[in-house]
Design a protein around this nucleic acid. Sequence first.
RNA 1: GCGAGCGUAGCUCAGUUGGUUAGAGCACCGGAUUGUGAUUCCGGGGGUCGUGGGUUCAAGUCCCAUCGCUCGCCCCA
Length: 417
Amino acid sequence: MACLQPVRGTHDILPKEFRLHRFIGDLAASIAERFGFEEIETPIFEFSEVFERTLGDTSDIVTKEMYTFQDKSGESLTLRPEGTAGVSRMIISNGLTQKLPLKYFYRGPMFRYERPQKGRYRQFHQIGVELLGISQPQADVEVIALANMLLKALEVSGNITLEINTLGNLVSRNHYRKVLVDYFNDHREDLSEDSILRLDKNPLRILDSKDPGDRKLIERAPIFNKYLDSESEIFFASVCRKLDALSISYHVNERLVRGLDYYGHTAFEFKTDALGAQGTVLAGGRYDGLIAQMGGHDTPGVGWAAGLERLSLLIKKEPTRKRPIAIIPVATEQHDLAISIANRMREEGYNIELAYQGNLSKRLKRANRLSCRAAVILGGDELERGKVGIRDFDSGEQMEAELGALSSSLLKFNSDC
RNA sequence: GCGAGCGUAGCUCAGUUGGUUAGAGCACCGGAUUGUGAUUCCGGGGGUCGUGGGUUCAAGUCCCAUCGCUCGCCCCA
């Protein structure tokens, strides 16, 4: 029986949910297009090195969180855990750094070997954008504005707030890290077990700790802003000023950090309180060091990604779709006619449900259940006079129409649901 | 990987201190109505009670293991 279950953390996407995914994805693609971002797709697996190289050997991520396996030739492959590394590899492989700046939108499944939680799965789906080749704050603001516009268009429920922070440039960040490590070392005995480990592996992440004891220490911890050099300061101020100019509201969260070394300057997250512990709906930042770290020419980049599963949980209104019209033969004698009328109407752009089987009552019942707007009823008596019945499911009225002028008679039944 | 809670029909759930043949609503299928949907009435199919083991005269109920789900921790690229 175990084999008939989906693998832990994966799930089937049935039509209702799929419509929602497509709605979000299509809307995102179209808004991205307004900003000049073109949609691309990279493979859903890469040589493991693509991801390992970007992550370094530091964290749990490589050992614990990736879907890594060997293929038949012995190559180590990894199902992509996120989009940026693949896009970066694509840019290097195709020599696209000749044509900077590059603006890409992508969507598709991602894989992480994690324990499932609310809005968090082993196979999940993301949309994302990357803007490469621009080291000025305009790029950061462009991608944030795009994200903001998308969330607004989606009319997502829950209080979504934009939190933003700067991680500074490399010099500032190293300086701050040193100060932070010193501070926490002085209070080592008060740190949680997890955070003592983080002190060595990833000290900035302590600022994100949920442990109440840690949080007290964090409140009094040195703040990043004070250790920014002037370049970092000017950069962040410029991002904020431009957001103000666009009337995009944000909250500066000095504790907002990123785990990996290639991140710098802007980091941002759109968060909601409606999803428990998994409150980040859309997150991104500047990753100027990434492409160089992967072995390409030093190329700045900034982008974000958002999970469709989480976004879906926040969508209030169902996406609409065109209601179909049913073509219903009364008896088997009309089946051939029905299928040819159905196809003709489809060629003219109508959504047509052909009633395949059952008596008239059942066919109508089924058409009704499929939320058809109307039914074209093909009965022997009417057809002899060159007519068909048209039943309006909303009003309950039924009228006759010329078979030859069917298409125009159906025009008024174009509606969404 | 760690912790807690939960697994009874497609869905939501009931099932007494362990006691005969495991129930309801919704959904589905059929009929009333073989040329007219939603309403109504009548009927029907569906379950190895997540799985395996144990205790017991007797287990959906108690115990152990395992799988899964949910929420949280770690991690969050």
